[in-house]
Computed example of a mutant assay.
Amino acid sequence: MNKILVIEDELDIANIILDYLVKERFEVKICQDGSLAMDIFHVFNPDLVILDLMLPGMDGYEICRKIREVSNIPIIILSAKVEEFDKIMGLKLGADDYVTKPFRMRELLARVQAMLRRSQIFNKGLSNPISFKELKIYPSEHRVEKNGTVIDLSPREFDVLIYLASNPGQVFTRDQLYNQIWGLEALGDISTITVTVNRLRQKLESDLNHPEYIQTVWGVGYKFGK
């Protein structure tokens, strides 16, 4: 049974999420105080976190950053903040997805299920390391090295990289990447792909103006290598 930690100070919303996910056979724990979130996180050891941004004690951005220091589990931000800046900030700190309030529980459930299926989908048949120039990707270990130095990637960044690197030279549109990796046709904002690719380039590329690994095919999408 997968465990989900819901960090949300609005008890009505938290209980709606809890009731819905429990019916879907998830084990769910609620945390309403940001200052207690990391203690509960370490004790509960969840498989996925649903995280509000506006919390007492410690805000969601800081909690997201702290979780990413110790874990690569999926994080879904659930927030009333709708500005593009807030979404980009959350994704930069390592969140995997961003859902704005009000939301539909069916959509949230679809996102939760898609993320928990992710490792099985992307690791299936991928056990051998992938090497390209100075980059080496270890799919089964979720590890990436450049010139022998480990590159710290979020789970979603790793998924985008492994998907592109497994199909070198093939061009994918943003819609294709979103549907294949996020697994949520027509439910999400494909600008998430742009943000994720930009973060990957900042971590992998020596020259952002002339990327070697994740390249843009103007008017179409992205590809890995040549």
Rank of each mutant, 00 (worst) to 15 (best):
P56D: 12
R174S: 09
E145N: 10
M115K: 11
C64A: 09
R117P: 07
Y98F: 15
T216W: 10
T194M: 13
S71R: 00
K223A: 01
R143D: 06
S191P: 07
D152M: 05
G148D: 13
T192R: 02
N45I: 02
I7L: 04
T149Q: 13
K136R: 12
C64W: 03
S166R: 03
K81D: 07
G148Q: 10
D152R: 01
L200D: 05
R25I: 15
L5A: 02
L109I: 15
P46H: 05
M1V: 15
Y138L: 08
L78Y: 08
I7K: 03
K87C: 15
K146T: 12
E212K: 09
D97Y: 07
A114Y: 03
G169M: 03
D97H: 05
G148P: 08
D39F: 10
L208K: 09
K133P: 00
L5D: 01
I214D: 02
R111K: 13
Y178R: 06
I16M: 14
S131V: 14
R156F: 08
C31P: 01
T100P: 05
R199T: 13
K146H: 12
R201W: 04
I214P: 00
T100G: 09
I63H: 00
Q180H: 08
V144C: 06
I193D: 04
L78V: 13
L78G: 05
L187P: 01
T216C: 10
L135V: 09
V160R: 01
L208H: 10
T192M: 13
L53W: 06
Q120R: 07
L177H: 02
A37T: 01
Q32W: 05
D9F: 08
K81R: 15
E83L: 11
D12E: 11
V144Q: 06
N2D: 05
V150F: 09
M105Q: 13
L204A: 09
M105D: 04
G183D: 02
W182P: 01
R104P: 01
L116E: 04
H42W: 08
G94H: 01
T194L: 14
D33K: 11
K92Y: 08
K29F: 13
D152A: 11
R118T: 02
K3W: 08
M115S: 05
N2G: 04
G94A: 07
L91M: 14
P139A: 08
E10Y: 09
E69A: 07
I77D: 03
Q120V: 13
E24F: 04
L5T: 02
P139C: 05
E62P: 03
R117Y: 08
Y163K: 03
S131L: 11
D33N: 12
L204N: 00
Y138M: 09
S127Q: 11
R118P: 02
C64V: 05
Y20G: 06
Y213F: 15
